[in-house]
């Protein structure tokens, strides 16, 4: 658990540091002016970010397209291997407090679709969200050798909690989620393994930074740490180790 605690500590450090920054800015304008301006800009500005949990204006949407890179557990794959994937993310405001979100992640062999609904609250500075998604996972690989007609499918419930802070130039958010497996099935050739069911398979923590990069182009960057017994990224390898491992994942996406 130490890496996750470290990540939490780092997130808190960032939030703490933001307090200093906000204090510096609040001296330049009156508190009431600041709040009024913030309220006016809130919905319009927040529509730009996917991870930040500030409420979205109803009917507005944000889309991200990018890549992620997971470092596969070395004991399982016996060497250092980063696994890439293409990520697409979509969020749309349904009401002032509710938004719909969906993520798609694929590297051809491993595919995850997760739609969900989240409730958003907070102000222009600190905001939060609580949501729930259903993850549909499908994988197929047939390259011979270790990867001889391997396939897997799973459905999981994914509750998520997000906390975010909007700075002058950047929105920082921390998300905590877990994967509760509802259905799982793995086939290796003609052999079948039902795998885990009605169990929490993993817990993951995501730290995201969203900010302008050049011109009006904005980016989302950050990392996730997944604490998992059976990391989905290596579903095609039979994991025989009865131990939870931490899998780091880095992501980088452009806002469309």
């Amino acid at each position: 658990m130490r890496p996750i605690l470290t990540a939490f500590a780092s997130g808190l450090l960032l939030l703490w540091s933001s307090g200093i920054v906000r204090a510096q800015f609040s001296s330049a304008a009156s508190q009431s002016d600041h709040l009024a301006l913030a309220k006016k800009d809130l919905l319009a500005d927040s529509s730009r970010y996917f991870y930040n949990p500030r409420p979205l204006m109803p009917g507005t949407a944000v889309m991200n397209l990018g890549i992620s890179l997971s470092l596969l557990p070395e004991p399982l794959v016996e060497q250092e291997i980063p696994a890439p994937a293409i990520d697409f993310q979509y969020k749309r405001g349904l009401t002032n407090s509710l938004s719909f979100y969906a993520t798609v992640s694929t590297n051809y062999f491993t595919n995850v679709l997760m739609p969900g609904i989240q409730y958003n609250g907070g102000d222009d500075g600190l905001s939060y969200a609580i949501g729930n998604g259903i993850a549909f996972f499908a994988g197929y690989i047939d390259l011979g050798g270790e990867f001889d007609r391997n396939s897997a499918a799973a459905i999981a419930d994914v509750p998520i909690l997000r906390v975010g802070h909007h700075f002058e130039q950047v929105a920082v958010s921390l998300s905590l989620a877990c994967t509760y497996v509802l259905y799982a099935d793995t086939h290796i050739g003609s052999l079948e393994d039902k795998g885990i069911k009605y169990k929490v398979d993993d817990v993951w923590l995501t730290l995201a930074f969203e900010q302008p990069f050049y011109g009006q182009t904005r980016i989302s960057t950050g990392m996730s740490l997944t604490y998992s017994r059976t990391p989905y990224q290596i579903w095609m390898l039979y994991n025989v180790f009865d131990q939870y491992l931490v899998i780091p994942e880095f992501f980088f996406s452009f806002q469309l």
Binding site: L13, S17, V21, Q169
Partner: peptide
């Protein structure tokens, strides 16, 4: 972190 906080100002 410290540099970033200061830079944010």
């Amino acid at each position: 972190c410290t540099c970033a906080s200061r830079a944010n100002a």
